[in-house]
Simulated assay, not measured.
Amino acid sequence: MKLGVALPLGDVGGEPGTLREFAQAAEAEGYDDLMLPDHVLGVNAASRPGWDPARATSANLFHDPFVAFGFLAACTTRIGFSTQVLVLPQRQTVLVAKQAACLDVLCHGRFRLGIGVGWNEVEFAGLNEDFRNRGRRSEEQVQVLRALWAEPHVTFRGRWHRIEDAGLNPLPPRRRIPIWFGGHVDATLRRIAKWGDGWMMLAHPPGEEARRAFDTLRRHVEAEGRDPASVGIEVWVSTGSGAEEDWREEFRFWKSAGVTHVTLNNSYGRYHHRRIAGRSLVEHLDAMRRYRAAVADLL
């Protein structure tokens, strides 16, 4: 199993020295991946009575993942980078393909692209993209991404994209970048089964509901003629509740359920997830070290 950790920018801030220190500490501890979420615009909650306080606003800090990971690629040597998740349909597909390819070159193939369809209509309006067709459009976007990464010249004619014998330079070192999907509706699982390298699952705590969701994904993968073992599954954990033995028990469950990637996210507090009480860099580094030490022999 792979163990990653989320960069807690909302707590510790986004200064270059802070990012570098956290990333280098995670790499030194043996973490496999660094994770960043994605939002471009945050709403002014003061002008929107009734706005869900758990939803992102302009008060929440989000570095652009491609920029932040490009910086951290020069500060690290081994640890990977993962978006969880990049809101793909609010962006121009060819530009995302270019940005991802350049990042993958600069970090020597350490990048994994996690994508989702988003929920914030305000962002789509600001970026001049259609919120209503975002799910269907994302399917074609994935096809465009894979084509542009694989070949020096591409001709593509789809419903939303048209490329006439053109291509990217540079191309990713492996001529592909792993694409993982976030989301929990059946349409998402079917997209993963058809095009995805993995599923980033947040909604279900350890238990039979999670196992059933994983089994549903595997059935969809088999129906597409693919090997279910070729599609990874990722979950988030936290040190916000319990102690070392509790964390080990949860980790054992996820391992028995076939989870391939676990990401420690100590600053997320939705669904069943609990964030840690501390907000300082020192407290986050300590929690990160304690969790890795607790589960190291189970990896």
Rank of each mutant, 00 (worst) to 15 (best):
S256I: 15
R270V: 12
W236V: 11
L171S: 14
D215A: 15
L3Q: 11
V231H: 07
V142G: 02
N120C: 01
E21A: 09
A257Q: 10
Y271S: 12
F131K: 10
G183H: 07
C102M: 04
T18W: 04
V231A: 15
K98F: 04
T188I: 15
L3G: 08
G269F: 05
R190W: 14
G167C: 05
E27R: 06
T57M: 02
L41I: 14
P205R: 12
L19W: 03
E209P: 01
T263S: 11
A46F: 04
C102E: 05
G278F: 07
H161S: 12
G158P: 04
M201N: 15
Q24A: 06
G70K: 07
G207A: 08
Q92M: 00
G80V: 06
L95W: 04
T260I: 05
K98S: 12
A277N: 07
S241W: 06
R218Q: 10
F111V: 13
G167W: 02
A28S: 08
A26D: 02
Q143E: 14
G42S: 03
E249A: 08
E222H: 03
T77I: 00
A125V: 11
G135D: 14
L9W: 05
R91W: 06
G116H: 02
L127M: 15
I79Q: 03
P8G: 09
E151R: 13
R78A: 10
D197E: 15
M1L: 12
H284S: 09
R20K: 12
W160I: 07
I276L: 06
R134G: 01
M35F: 03
W236A: 13
V282P: 05
E250T: 04
W160F: 04
R136W: 00
H273N: 13
E15K: 08
F22N: 07
A54W: 06
A257D: 06
S47R: 12
D104H: 06
I163A: 08
A73N: 11
A54N: 05
Q90S: 11
H273G: 14
H284M: 02
W199E: 10
E209D: 14
I115W: 11
A25F: 01
G158Y: 12
S238D: 06
I163V: 13
F156R: 15
V235H: 01
G232N: 11
T216Q: 11
E121T: 10
G167V: 11
R211T: 15
G135P: 09
R289S: 05
A193D: 03
V231P: 00
E164G: 05
L171Q: 14
F66N: 04
W247N: 10
V117A: 11
A74S: 07
T260R: 00
A193W: 04
V67F: 03
R110L: 09
T260K: 00
A125T: 03
M200T: 11
V122P: 00
D186V: 07
L145G: 02
Q141A: 07
F62Y: 14
M35G: 09
V282W: 05
I276W: 03
V235R: 15
C102L: 11
F81C: 04
E164S: 09
F214L: 12
A59M: 11
H220R: 02
V87K: 01
R55T: 01
F69D: 13
A203S: 13
R137M: 03
A54S: 03
V40F: 13
G114T: 14
I233V: 15
A296H: 14
V96Q: 01
V221R: 02
L264E: 09
F156S: 10
G4F: 02
